[in-house]
């Protein structure tokens, strides 16, 4: 098991105005597993992803990555944890506009104080893996949405993290590009064996996962193991169920 969330609670506000974004969520992510989290807007999907990635503070509960409780980490340790163990992919790519594709990918290594030769090698590999050779010196504004998301993926994998957290990675893309990105993520998982946790609305994209977790009102309401078979109808009906 690469990651474990135990009794996660995240609430905002105080007293009677308290809103529970996550309510006692417990889940495990296995090594190399591809998990999709689905649920309606406001169900707590993104909040769960933030807590798993150590981006936000937990009201109560634990998140363990490789057996280490990240809720006890101090800010600098958390930053190091995110740099080493987690690869983030966002819906709107979140690339640094002033850096080229290559430099965006190099950013986590640079922050880690990596040697230039190692950095060049790793960045080259990551860019090659996402199929962006020849576009590496372009700025984000000179790349298409699909290409930008490939850069974001390359950045997420460049440090060879244990787990990749993706928040609606295809949300801003057309269907052709979306499928390409999902194929890419899937292939990467198959090649490097990294676990992927992906938040998505789209059953087609969720179908790439090994397991789907359904969230509603901050709670896990269902879980589906796909086992390599894709039953979209079932997925859609489950999703509808969680939406209703």
């Amino acid at each position: 098991m690469i990651m474990e969330a135990i009794g996660l609670i995240k609430s905002y506000g105080e007293g009677s105005a308290t809103v529970k974004a996550l309510d006692n969520v417990t889940l495990q992510i296995e090594d190399g597993e591809f998990v999709a989290i689905m649920g309606p807007s406001g169900s707590g999907k993104s909040t769960l992803l933030h807590l798993m990635g150590g981006l936000d503070s937990i009201t109560s509960g634990q998140v363990k990555v490789n057996g280490r409780d990240i809720t006890t980490l101090k800010e600098a340790e958390l930053a190091r944890f995110r740099r080493k163990e987690i690869g983030f992919i966002f819906q709107s790519y979140n690339l640094v506009s002033v850096l080229t594709a290559e430099e965006n990918v190099a950013l986590p290594l640079l922050m880690d104080g990596c040697k230039e030769s190692v950095m060049r090698e790793n960045v080259g590999k990551a860019i090659n893996l996402v199929g962006l050779d020849g576009r590496s010196h372009h700025r984000p504004s000179q790349l298409s949405g699909g290409e930008q998301q490939r850069v974001a993926i390359a950045r997420a994998i460049v440090n060879n993290p244990s787990i990749i957290l993706a928040d609606e990675p295809t949300g801003n893309l057309d269907s052709v590009n979306a499928e390409e990105i999902m194929d890419l993520l899937s292939n990467l998982r198959n090649k490097s064996g990294q676990a992927i946790v992906m938040v998505t609305h789209d059953p087609k994209m969720a179908a790439y996962a090994d397991r789907i977790i359904f969230l509603k009102d901050g709670r896990i309401i269902d879980e589906e193991r796909l086992g390599g078979k894709i039953d979209q109808k079932k997925l859609v009906s489950k999703l509808k169920g969680s939406t209703n």
Partner: peptide, 16 residues
């Protein structure tokens, strides 16, 4: 803001 948040999200420290 967004960019700085991102830097922190992908492991940039406060010091950096």
């Amino acid at each position: 803001r967004r960019e700085i948040g991102l830097i922190k999200a992908i492991g940039g420290t406060r010091g950096q």
